[in-house]
Amino acid sequence: MHALDALRDAVSRHLSRSPDSGPCLTGIDGVVLMRAQAERHPTHLVHQPAICMVLQGAKWTAFGEQRQEYRAGQARIVNVTVPGSSQVVEGDNHAPYLSLVVVFDQAILSEVYEKLAGVITPCTGAPVPAFAIDLNAQLLDCARRIVDLLDQPLAADILFPGLMRELCYLLLSGPRGDVLAGQIVSTQRNQKLMQVLQALRVRYAQSQSLEALADMAGMSISAFHRSFKALTGMTPLDYQKKVRLMEARRLMITERVSAEATAYAVGYASASQFSRDYARMFGLPPRQDINKLTGISQHV
Rank of each mutant, 00 (worst) to 15 (best):
I221W: 02
C52N: 12
S220C: 03
G125Q: 09
H299V: 12
S18I: 14
M194L: 15
S186I: 00
C123M: 03
S16W: 05
I28H: 05
Y239M: 05
A248H: 02
L33A: 10
D289G: 00
Q188L: 13
L149P: 04
P127R: 11
Y264C: 00
E39C: 01
Y97A: 01
A271E: 07
G91F: 03
D20C: 03
D178C: 11
G73Y: 10
G22L: 12
E69Y: 07
G57P: 03
E166S: 12
V128R: 13
L150H: 06
D141I: 05
S258N: 06
A214L: 07
T235G: 14
L163V: 08
R176P: 00
S297C: 10
A205C: 01
Q66W: 03
L167E: 07
T61I: 11
D5G: 01
G64K: 05
S272E: 12
V147Y: 07
S99N: 10
D20S: 13
Q191R: 13
E90R: 15
V202I: 15
D134V: 12
R250W: 09
V101I: 14
K241D: 04
L170M: 04
E166A: 13
V102T: 08
Q37Y: 13
R226K: 15
G267Y: 08
G30M: 09
F224Q: 05
F224W: 08
F160G: 00
V102H: 05
L139A: 07
D141Y: 02
R287T: 15
V112G: 02
D238F: 00
L15S: 03
Q183C: 10
L15E: 04
L45G: 02
L193N: 03
A95P: 00
R67V: 04
M53G: 00
S297E: 10
L180K: 03
P175D: 15
D5N: 14
F274S: 01
Y278A: 02
R203C: 09
I51R: 04
S18K: 11
G182C: 09
T262R: 04
R144W: 03
C52M: 11
Q208W: 15
L15P: 00
V300G: 06
P19N: 11
I296Y: 08
Q208G: 02
A58K: 08
Y204P: 00
R67Y: 02
L171C: 09
E114P: 00
K229G: 01
V102D: 01
T43R: 14
V257F: 04
S18C: 12
A75E: 06
K115D: 11
G182F: 09
L163C: 07
A3D: 07
R250V: 01
Y70H: 13
Q273R: 15
A205S: 12
F224R: 08
E255L: 12
D105R: 08
K292S: 13
D277H: 15
P23I: 11
I133K: 05
D92L: 08
M216L: 14
A223E: 13
P49L: 11
Y204S: 07
N79I: 01
L25N: 07
